[in-house]
Structures are given as structure tokens and as C-alpha cells.
Design a protein around this nucleic acid. Structure first.
Lengths: 207, 207, 207, 207
DNA sequence: CAATAAGCGAGACGGTACGTCCCGTCTTGGG
DNA sequence: CCCAAGACGGGACGTACCGTCTCGCTTATTG
């Protein structure tokens, strides 16, 4: 196992490889993506790919991460004080992403890759999903401080209560993903997370 | 494209292929499964596989469906009258399945296949997941009649409120799947689905 | 080994198979001829072919024989008394056949088949070439009686002296096959076969 | 159609492929030779064969050519002055080769290949047969200068007069190929080629 | 400031599996 | 019992990619 020296690495090649991979997935789909095609498209030797990435999946994940780096930077949910509205905003945004054919296809490709390769899975969930989940958790924490959420609520589960249903419906295509659906999920979640009677009778959810 | 005549089909070969595929996935994993290996193991020509299935994924899905045909027959959740207990039973059972390495691997393989091929997806969800979801929906319907669930609750969403979080956590490996977790999800769901104050004051959830 | 009963044989199928084979060779060439294609073209089950012929080569040979049956019937060289003219006639006719692209291709196919399969070889040489060689030998025998050919000449070799050069040139494509060439070969052969001085001084070849 | 770069070609693989092909033909016969078997025997990927040769026939022909490269180098018939003896030597040698089962099989394989593929045909005749024919023609030219052969004899035809009959008999297996037969053919040829009466009365064929 | 060592493009290599074609056998149903 | 139809186990085809391995060719320190 030789560990190449990263200081010598060609940034030009790295960029060419990542965008070649990204474009090819858009054109032919992730399933038909090959390392040889990436190399050819990028004008790069295959060895240069194998030197820096362990698999085509890793290249693709990095491509996605790289191209969405800026957006996700310091992701934070807006905190308008209106928890219901803020959560609706997140879920509706996610529903919108899943309804974009390009993003849908890419997300499914990433998910399939994550299913097969645990290492890629943690990469993906850690760097793409992670920040969103964390930001939502943070928003719920703030709401809990404001007494809008039960004091003993497990926020990790709370987050899954919001994203789980949407993810489930998207993955299994059981029913259409609409804004109305997103709102319904938020409504259920708010009820589930609401402080118990008497815990805080002076503060309403809408507060 | 010539469509072969199914009346002449060899049932013996079909069975051999399906169980070869199933066994091979158990032994070497879905990712390393090949059509050639299935054919060799089944003592069958490759053409016989390609004649009846479009891909190795389709073979595997049919293998799973075929071998689980009897079990899922007329699936119905127990209805003890105790909704909390009944739902805990379902979610804990699912958590147990996902914690079995064999079943876990197989489920991930099926999910990956479903992601890549919408046709297989509906086959899978329709014949494996569908019955479970429907049975749970039926149990909730019964609970709604008993006044334990809000009269206006959308049961399709309710089901996703239960399964979504578990599925999310399993797929993304964000946290361990435990019975305790299952119970927490049930608790949240029951609160979310609970009849609104005054809707029915003579009936408690615990019934 | 089952020996089918020839009395039950379908003459209609036999004819269909032979002409399908013949036509297919004309269309796609002998090398690409397949039993399945013959069966499909003839509207016949593959088994019907395998029941009556041992190989596709055998079918083709029989096809050629069958379609040229009449011509070769009781083949005999003309005996005008002019040996030179008669032999030129045969060789020129052969040269003409080899110069016909259709017949050329077919002859090469037959030769290739004969090279690979001794059984077909004797079939071919016995039933196609044989009669021609025998007729020529007969003509030479007549000439020998007339004193135009040396009394001790081995006529089997004599025949090869005539056909060998033409065959050699055709097979190896070393030089073009022309009537002039045929005549030259005849000339050489006549000299080679001429009676030795004094053996018969009153009879000339041209006689 | 990408044409590979010959400078990067592996000579080791080339040699392994050629001798594997040669050995396999000797062991199982040309008809049963497969590209896969050659690759396996040579310890080579199939693609390496397809990269450099268009067909198994081409591999075999090159194998034969390569292994007989040295022998045929500057082929020249012995010129003892005794034309009859020299020609008998050539034809007897050829008869011997055809009577060696190994060489017989190989020659038939080459002939079949040459029949099906004109490109290979010229390769074969040009590099294997060509030199022999040319050497014989040269010997006859020398004999013509010595007055043992008619001045106006077409030596290309003369050569075919010698080899044609032998080739004919070998290809068609009409009669056994013996030294006696070779001698007979030489005898006929010498008579055919002999100078006409009076053309040169001071020189006999026997020299 | 040469020497030298790394990354690089290119692409040949040994391999594995693909999906197709055809082989020769076997089975079914019809005449 | 022959026939048409065609499914079957099997073997080879020629192709696509895999991941590894040289090749020369830049390029960027470093003795």
C-alpha cells in the first residue's frame, strides 16, 4: 500500500474527475457510470483515479459534496420563533428536492451506494444528511428551551419523527410527496412533541 | 424480442434457480452475486435465466418473494385491544429483523434493487412491505373505531409515522435500533394520533 | 441410437430443408449457416434435421447434390475423336465454373467442409467430383485405345495432370484462371501423355 | 475501431499465445480450437488475443508462420544438375510431409482457413507455399538455361504441373500419396516440359 | 542547477462477468 | 411415429470494465 503525497496532487485533474463523474451520472445514470468513462471524459489516466479514490462511489460522493460545499457550509434552520412554520419550511424544501428529477435520481444513486458500502454510508450521512439533521435538532432544542416541546423529548428521535415519514414515502414510492403531506407530518410531530398537560400551561405551541 | 411460452417452462429449473440465488446471497452477499454463479449452482444454462428474468435483481426479488410467500399469506396484526402493546409488538419485530445480520443484508440488497429499478420497487413494496403496512393500517382503523385514535387522522400517514423513523434509522445507520427505540417511536405516534381534548372524554388510549 | 423409419419421412420437409440450406448459403455464406436458421427458414423443427442428417455440412452437400442431380446424371465427355479439343472443353468448363462467384463460393464451402470432415469428403468427391474424373478417365482410355496416349500411361495420374494444376491455381489464387491457362495445361498434358517415339509412329495426337 | 499501440505490446504474451495455439491444435485439432482455450493455456486475457488478432484462424496462421520462420528463410532447391533427381526430391519431401499425421492435420487446417478468408490465404501462400514454388521455378529456370526444358515453357504453369497433381490427390484423398506417385508425376512433367524435337539435339534431359 | 523522484496521460495487461448465439437433446401436443 | 415448436443444459463467442502494471513525459523539490 503506497500512500501518495498529496502536496504533489494535481488540482486540475481532481476537478476534471469530479465534474466528469457528476456530468456522467446526469447523462447516463449512476448505475452505468464506470471508472474508465470518468477517466476518458476527464482526460485523465485511470491510475490517477485509483490513486486518490477507493471506488467510483467515492468519486461520485465527493463530486456531490464538492459541488454542494458552499450551500451546506454552516447550515442553520431559520428560527422565526414559529416552530410550526420553521419545520414546514424544512420538510417542504426536502419534498421539493425529491420532486426534482435530477436530484431525485442523484439521491437514489447515493442511497444505493450507501446501502452497499458502509464506509460511503457514513461519509454521505455524515456530510450531507448530517448537517440538516443537526440543524433541525438544534431548532428543536431551541423550541424545547422555549417550552414548545416536552422537556424530556429525545430530540434524535424527534428528528426522525419528522424526516422518517418523508424518507419512507420517497424511498418506497407508496404515495406522492406533496407540501400538504409535509405539513401533515409536521402537525403529527408537533402533537407528539407537545409538552404534557400541566408541564407548561402558560406557553402554547404557536407561542 | 420473442416472448417464450410459459406453459413449456420447467418448474424444476425455476425452483433450482431461485434457491441457488437465495443461497448465494446468503453466502457471498448480493453485491458479489452473478448470473453465471446462479446458473452454475442451479445446474442450469444461463439462457434459461435470461429467458425468464431480465436481471439478477429480478431473480433475487422473486426468490425472496417466493420463499416468503406462505408466511405473509393473510397477515394480520394481533388485536388485543391494547393498541400500545400491539404497535410495540410490530415495531419490535421489525427491529429484530433488521438486527439479524442475514435479514439485514437481504433487506439492504432488496432496497438497493428497488432504488435502481422502479418496477422491482413496486413488486417489493407491493408484496413484502405492503401487507405489513396494510395490516398496521387495519389495526389503527380498529383503534380509531374504538376512539383511541383521532377520528380525522390520515391512517396512511399514521403508518409512516410508525415505520418511517425506524426505516430512516436503519437505512442511515445513524443510531442503534433497539426495542427501547421502538417503544419511544410508538409513544410519540400515540401522542400524535391521540384524539383531541373533548373529542372523546370517556375513552382512554390504554382502553 | 435410434434409426428412424424412412418410409414415414416427410418429403415436403426434406425439400424445404434442402432448399432453405441452399438459399441461406447463397445469402449469408456457408460459414454463417446454422441449423437453427435452416429449420426456421424451412418451417421445420430442428429435430427433423438432426433426425435425418448428421451435420449442417451433410445437409448442404445433399442440397448441392440434389439440385444438381439431373445435370450430372450420366455424365460423359463428348468424344469427337479430337482429344485436344475434348480436354480443352472440360478444363474450360471447369475454369468457367470457378469464375462464377456463386459457384466459386459454394465450391470453397464444400472444400472447406471436406477438409474438416473425411466422411463428407468422400461424399463430395464421390458424388460430385468423382463422375467428372471418371468421365475424363474414360475419354483418355478411349484415346489410349486410339494410340493417342502412351499405352503404359497411368490414367489416374493422367487425370490429375489435367485437373491438379487448375485446382491448385484455384485453391491458392496464385494466378488468374483463364481459358488460355486451361489450354496450356491441356497442351502440357498431351505432351506428357504422348506415346513414346516408335510406339506408334503412324498415329499423331491430332489424328 | 481503436488501433492499439504496437510499441507497448507484450512480446511475452504474444509468444505464449502463439505456442499455446500451436500446441492446442496438435492436441485437440484445429476444429476444436477455441480462443478461450488459447487464452487459458497462454495465461492471458481473451482481450489480449482480440486486441492483436481478428480471429482464431489468424492466430493459428501466425503461429505456424512464426514457428517456421527460420526454416524457410532462404529456401533453395539443390541443383545437382540432375533435374529429374532434384524434382523427385522436392515432390517426395512434400509427399512425406502430407503423410505425417501432425503435418497433414495442420496443413488441412491452414487450407480450410485459407479457403474461408482470402486475406489469410495470401498470407499463407505468400509465406509458406510461395518460397517453395519460387525455389522450384528457379530450379526449372536453371534447367531451361541448360536446355533441359523447352525454351518457351511457362514456368508458372510448369510448377503447377508438378505440385497440382500432388495437391489434388492430397486434398481429395482420391488415392494414396507415395514416393512412386511422386516419381510418376515428375516423369510426366519432364516429358511435358521437354524441349521439342530439334530444338536442342545435343542436350538430353538426363544431362 | 542538474539530478531525481513523484504524479501524470495513456493504455496494455490478466481477469471476471456479461448477454447472445448456437449446439444437440429432450418434451409436448397435434395429425 | 413423425412432425413443428421450442425449452433445456451447455459451451463459446466477442465486449465491457475491473484494478494493476508499465511506459515516457512533465514538474518541483533537493543535494
Amino acid at each position: 500500500m503506497k500512500t501518495p503525497n498529496p502536496t504533489r496532487r494535481s488540482e486540475r485533474s481532481r476537478q476534471a474527475i469530479l465534474s466528469a463523474a457528476f456530468d456522467l451520472v446526469a447523462e447516463i445514470g449512476y448505475a452505468k457510470l464506470t471508472v474508465e468513462a470518468i477517466a476518458a471524459r476527464a482526460g485523465v489516466g485511470k491510475q490517477t483515479i485509483y490513486r486518490w479514490w477507493p471506488s467510483k462511489g467515492a468519486v461520485f460522493v465527493e463530486a456531490v459534496l464538492d459541488l454542494s460545499r458552499d450551500e451546506r457550509g454552516e447550515l442553520a434552520l431559520p428560527d422565526t420563533g414559529d416552530l410550526r412554520a420553521d419545520l414546514r419550511g424544512v420538510l417542504r424544501a426536502i419534498v421539493d428536492e425529491y420532486n426534482d428529477p435530477k436530484l431525485d435520481a442523484m439521491s437514489r444513486a447515493l442511497s444505493a451506494e450507501a446501502l452497499a458500502d458502509p464506509a460511503l454510508n457514513s461519509e454521505i450521512t455524515g456530510r450531507i444528511l448530517g448537517p440538516i439533521l443537526e440543524a433541525t435538532r438544534e431548532r428543536l432544542r431551541s423550541a424545547r428551551r422555549a417550552g414548545q416541546v416536552a422537556a424530556d423529548a429525545d430530540l434524535s428521535v424527534a428528528v426522525e419523527l419528522l424526516f422518517g415519514p418523508v424518507y419512507h414515502r420517497w424511498m418506497l414510492r407508496t404515495n406522492p410527496l406533496t407540501h400538504e403531506y409535509a405539513d401533515t407530518v409536521v402537525e403529527f410531530a408537533l402533537r407528539a412533541l407537545a409538552p404534557t398537560q400541566g408541564e407548561s400551561d402558560s406557553v402554547s405551541v404557536k407561542g
